[in-house]
Design a protein around this nucleic acid. Sequence first.
DNA 1: GGTAGAAGCGGACACGGCGTCCAGTTATTC
DNA 2: GAATAACTGGACGCCGTGTCCGCTTCTACC
Lengths: 199, 199
Amino acid sequence: MRADAARNRRRVLAAAEQLFASGDARQVTMEDIARAAGVGRATIYRRFPTPAAVALELLDEHERRLQEAIMRGEPPLGPGAPPADRLAAYFEAMVGLLDGHLHLALGAETGNARFATGAYQFWRAHVRHLLREAGTSELDAMVDIVLAPLAPDLYRFQRYELGIGREQITAALGLLARKVTAGEPPGGRAQATHLHTGP
Amino acid sequence: MRADAARNRRRVLAAAEQLFASGDARQVTMEDIARAAGVGRATIYRRFPTPAAVALELLDEHERRLQEAIMRGEPPLGPGAPPADRLAAYFEAMVGLLDGHLHLALGAETGNARFATGAYQFWRAHVRHLLREAGTSELDAMVDIVLAPLAPDLYRFQRYELGIGREQITAALGLLARKVTAGEPPGGRAQATHLHTGP
DNA sequence: GGTAGAAGCGGACACGGCGTCCAGTTATTC
DNA sequence: GAATAACTGGACGCCGTGTCCGCTTCTACC
């Protein structure tokens, strides 16, 4: 890449970071970014197809760091700890990521974009591995179900519309992690705590 | 409402239903609906602010039926069954709704629209009640976490990009229902199946 | 059953973002 | 240092949006 192109790329990313942080990330347009970065619109189009792609690029940097910690870091996030602990640690780390860069995560969400990213594939593989290790059944469907609560939209709703604290969300996810990695619940079908004359 | 207005309203809804069903629901514009319904654009704006609002109206009809079944229908969907069974039955019913009207659910999704609907408030209250009955802790945060796997986007991804069957998703959600309504997992913190010299 | 008044209708308008193109400019290569 | 390839950004046409206003159609009242 040419030196001037690299400089512009940095300018664009820096300006976009600012823009996404201030105000509704989903309303940021290419024109906004171009104006803030001091470049023409076509210059951005050369590298990024949409504003969401710019947000994704910024977000990816942080996600890669977490991926590294998962693959080669210390337990319980890294290898070595039991699945329940690793899953809980992963949830906690993701809450940290969401909390710190929610604007980017929201800006990167355009329709179904979340599932199409490479990052999602990584999370999927990781959680699938943990669930398998824990002996969870219905693996293929369960993986995405377990990842669903990490949707940026949901986190925004919980935090800023319901006013739930970050610690509470982390605790609830930790509980979920233990529950889904636990063996089959006792009683199998139903715990008869209610009077109910069946069908 | 005047008779001609009611007739146009029906025309709009019928045309929109068709449109959402064929092709990408998220790309349906007011212009599309107006053309298909044979009315002017402003006529639709009189009653609906966005295409998503039209989809929501259509979806609401189906959701109200399910709400009725939950409040006054037979167990396990209706009152009387144990929480685990009711939650599993609710999940199964929601999968049916998603499967039958996915295009509407996707069309109704504009940004954070999902959480703002009255329907979501109902689901939230219902699941909260069930979890409370089951003695789940971290209730407030857990409710939305448990509802997260029902996001239309996710269902579309699982069904049509991963190719997971409806039955598998239903089974996995049933498993989740039993797990989250079960008591605290044995071992509390970690099941020591791995060697790990922690801090 | 005729008429006054209101409610509904839809074409027209201005706006803004999108995505592309191309002519001028700047960096790299030989 | 000249040839060549890459980059840049202003300009253009397109499409959807949301609103406005003159015209039409219905309804309620006499």
